[in-house]
Design a binder for these strands. Sequence first.
DNA 1: TAGATTGTTAATCGATTAACAATC
DNA 2: TAGATTGTTAATCGATTAACAATC
Lengths: 216, 216
Amino acid sequence: MILEDSVLEKEISQAVIRRMPRYYRYLGELLDEGVERISSGELSERMSVTASQIRQDLNNFGGFGQQGYGYNVSFLYEEIGKILGLDQNHNIIIIGAGNLGQALANYMKFDRLGFHTIALFDVKEELIGKNIRGIEVLHVKELDHFVKTHDVDIAALTMPKSSADDIANHLVSLGIHAIWNFAHVDLSIDAKDVVVENVHLSDSLMQLSYNIVKNK
Amino acid sequence: MILEDSVLEKEISQAVIRRMPRYYRYLGELLDEGVERISSGELSERMSVTASQIRQDLNNFGGFGQQGYGYNVSFLYEEIGKILGLDQNHNIIIIGAGNLGQALANYMKFDRLGFHTIALFDVKEELIGKNIRGIEVLHVKELDHFVKTHDVDIAALTMPKSSADDIANHLVSLGIHAIWNFAHVDLSIDAKDVVVENVHLSDSLMQLSYNIVKNK
DNA sequence: TAGATTGTTAATCGATTAACAATC
DNA sequence: TAGATTGTTAATCGATTAACAATC
């Protein structure tokens, strides 16, 4: 039974996953425009990808379309939302209440997607007690107690890289399984069931820089 | 001659480019540790990639190693820096002086890499005149004059998505060729010689969310 | 010199695109 | 029904890995 499951369950490549939020975004726009149905051909033109890729991508998760008709926009939007886990709520804590941490806490867009920041943490006394859209900045020494008494799904690391690895491993030991890492390091976490998503801003800037120089 | 050039010039894939900043980061660490030379084998273990990929990647840009010896850390570090354009200065302006814009302006790390923020722009009166590490927040109405009188290499867009596309195209018309886009939209710029690097934070969060749900 | 490790070619693997039968 | 468009298989393309001759 277990064997059968693992055999049937085809792993979906991260290349596909990376494209799903973009589909979700475009379908949201179509929805706003009042478009009811769309074919892979039309969508492909809008998004500058091949229609083949769209159909192939979607069929990793099931047949959401109908021959001769195309895809129902609102249905597909909902389905991709479910695939991405947007049908459930995710509580976020942010470690590092500097500008970046505060910026993340301020994004109302994340709330609309089901991601709710419930606390920020920092070590700087002048930040403790500060309130961002009703979200309080707490001292890091309260982290353990907070995590044990709240439902925390994601920890965003927006503190300096020097402490990132220690904090990350500590959070994992507290039972956190998902880390959104903005620190400029690759975290070394041995636990196998922890997912890490990196946002390396300086890497992104260097990529841009490469393309600038190449362009000249 | 032109034909010959374009034939010889093999386009390097973005997959390779995306890995270069990571090599740069690890080499920087080795440098800090005082390591003088490293083989692709040792580096591959540290970075959890194949030695083959490292050699293949580097050889897109030239032979930086030596048979029987490996790679000289500081030389390779310098060379990758050059490839990524870190041997030159890049002036950045940030459009949108909210938390995210301020966070970017505050990153001293970028300065160390040669990326200097020289101004922020916003429309909110309460932000105008504010000073971040000596960088002033100006009103957007001064944008044209500023760009014409300064050497601006990169524009970072950290304002709401509603105005992102208009501003982006306006910046391009002012002669800016590189955009670091944090707005949650795909910019539609027709100019062919403009490079855009997107940082879609909500896409990143959704990817994380997918992996959380899959993990359960 | 012998040993180590690169640079590079060849083999494999995976992802994208094309094609088309199934079907609404 | 005829036309449109999907779902899916097959073909192509590109990226990764393996292998090894070149050479320090």
